[in-house]
């Protein structure tokens, strides 16, 4: 089932001589349980695409269907509601509220949605456990490592059980080991919890975790790589390398 479907999405900034076309006729579909990475050089429009799909910005032309809603037609209030209920965000800079502890941060979207505090905390604690953070639930962000902070952010993104998780350079501020952990966690989000995951990254190794990689250049999709196969084939690859010795 398609969670996101964009049709000829375009975004133009500025006017007159200073027109910048950030996105040109982008049509993209992401299915339930699919993990899609968007790659491309900086300025290629990948962040703009993510903002449009996340309802943080409005397209100049084209439509975005998110789980049945046409985002380009929603009012600000409805859009806010869609963000709250259907989308989970993971940011490069984690963006946790410094004065709230891990559980409170993860519970934030639930609280914003009007859930009772105790229930929200319980749900958030559950998700923290699932993302592998059970010991540090009462730590504040400054007491957590970067990888741990990003796990809290992922738990926060998942807490409302959204259809879609959007990640903007989620490993941009992490070392390679924490990056692998976070990317693996996003893989798990798609495989185990069957969310559609759309991630922007410039790191090939992180992109390789995805099911599909979309290559953007100058605002257009220039290539897509569908990655299929099982870990077993990978094992074969290693064997071949060993044999070559």
């Amino acid at each position: 089932m398609a969670i996101i479907q964009t049709n000829n999405l375009s975004k133009v900034y500025g006017s007159g001589d200073a027109v910048v076309t950030a996105l040109r006729d982008v049509s993209l579909t992401v299915e339930t349980g699919e993990f899609v990475a968007v790659m491309g050089p900086s300025g290629c429009g990948k962040s703009t695409l993510l903002h449009l799909i996340g309802g943080l910005d409005r397209p100049t032309a084209g439509t975005i269907q998110l789980d049945g809603d046409d985002l380009s037609r929603l009012s600000d209030t409805r859009l806010t509601e869609v963000r709250r209920r259907k989308i989970g965000f993971v940011f490069q800079f984690f963006n946790l509220i410094p004065v709230l502890d891990a559980v409170e941060n993860a519970a934030l979207p639930l609280i914003l949605d009007g859930m009772k505090l105790a229930a929200a905390r319980a749900t958030a604690a559950e998700w923290l456990q699932r993302v592998g953070l059970d010991g540090q639930t009462s730590h504040r962000p400054d007491q957590l490592s970067g990888g741990q902070q990003q796990r809290v952010a992922i738990a926060r993104a998942l807490a409302t059980e959204p259809a879609l998780v959007l990640a903007d350079e989620p490993t941009g501020n992490l070392d390679s080991r924490a990056s692998d952990e976070v990317a693996g966690l996003l893989r798990q989000v798609a495989d185990e919890w069957q969310r559609a995951v759309l991630m922007v990254t410039h790191d090939p190794r992180i992109a390789a975790y995805a099911d599909r990689i979309v290559f953007l250049k100058d605002g257009s999709i220039i290539d897509q790589a569908r990655l299929n196969g099982t870990p077993l084939e990978g094992a074969q690859l290693v064997r071949d390398k060993v044999e070559a010795l």
Binding site: A207, A208, N228
Partner: peptide, 13 residues
Amino acid sequence: YQDLHDLTAQRRL
């Protein structure tokens, strides 16, 4: 990318 995908998958295992 396919190779990388497979390898990272295996590496996770």
